[in-house]
Design a protein around this nucleic acid. Structure first.
Length: 275
DNA sequence: AGTGTCGCCTGAATGC
DNA sequence: TGCATTCAGGCGACAC
């Protein structure tokens, strides 16, 4: 799945059932995910209490009462199911049984492509964690400013599309939302970052925040894999303006939306509006 | 150090 | 219908 709004949706749903819950049981069915999951993870986690869940970029982080952090990354196809009764399905790789106020919940990690990852590490290792140490600012936080982007972009020759999906610069934007943001900001994805004006950067920041927030409000974008943990769909797909809209008309100028492959990734553009 | 390409893996859609 | 090819919300390992 999963760009920031989808991960945020999953994270909020998890929070509702895991906050102050006790971990009764952990089972792995496969540990060969993007990387091999640690051998003793189950042992270290059993009987711990989850404090809450929060999101950093596209990572879900769940601190425990023993000063550890449980990490879930969904990769391209990862899903979380939360149910009271459940049966193990194809591509389920892990499940947790947690108890919260005498109620039991089954939390299942399903990931057909196994590009995702699950980890457990000490809280004090958070800053140096190999997946988290280099990631950039939160797009919905205060650190995403024109000055921040100017500092990152000067002396660089990459295009703005690649910059937006580079997790080391901004954490959470992926291929769908990069197209949507640049369309609304009326900026061509191939523009070099060091050529962007203050106005351009301001538009990018403004629409990044608007689009991501709107999508979170409706449960993210369901195109193929993403589902909310209770099985319901995300409805931002209906609000997409350009992604996947090849040969449909731009709502502003009526010219056709085209698909262009940039660095091996599909990018959708209105060539008339985005200059 | 910064930049571009490749490939990890499975399944759905598309093409012949 | 059947089989091959292409493509997919990510991202680290490489080569240059």
């Amino acid at each position: 799945m999963p760009e920031l709004p989808e991960v945020e949706t999953v994270c909020r749903a998890l929070s509702k059932v895991i906050k102050n819950s006790r971990i009764k049981k952990i089972e792995f069915y496969r540990k060969d995910l993007r990387w091999q999951v640690k051998d003793n993870l189950e042992v270290s986690l059993k009987n711990n209490i989850f404090i809450d869940s929060y999101r950093r970029g596209k990572y879900i982080l769940i601190p425990t009462n023993t000063d550890k952090i449980f990490l879930i990354h969904l990769g391209m196809s990862g899903q979380i199911r939360i149910k009271k009764k459940d049966i193990v399905q194809k591509h389920d790789h892990m499940r947790l049984i947690v108890e919260n106020n005498n109620k039991h919940f089954i939390i299942t990690y399903n990931d057909s492509r196994r590009f995702g990852y699950i980890d457990l590490f000490k809280k004090k290792e958070l800053r140096e964690h190999f997946l988290l140490s280099k990631i950039g600012v939160e797009p919905l936080g205060r650190e995403l400013t024109i000055e921040y982007l100017q500092n990152n972009f000067k002396k660089r020759v990459i295009n703005i599309k690649n910059a937006l999906i580079d997790q080391k610069i901004i954490a959470g934007i992926g291929n769908i939302y990069a197209s949507e943001i640049l369309y609304k900001a009326k900026i061509n994805p191939l523009r070099k970052v060091n050529s962007l004006s203050q106005n351009d950067l301001n538009s990018i920041i403004t629409y990044t925040k608007i689009i991501l927030k709107k999508s979170i409000d409706v449960g993210g974008t369901t195109i193929r894999d993403h589902m909310q943990p209770d099985g319901s769909l995300g409805y931002f797909k209906q609000k997409l303006q350009v992604y996947g809209k090849t040969n449909e008309k731009c709502k502003t100028c009526n010219s056709f939306i085209v698909k262009e492959v940039i660095s091996n990734r599909s990018t959708f553009i209105c060539r008339h509006c985005q200059i």
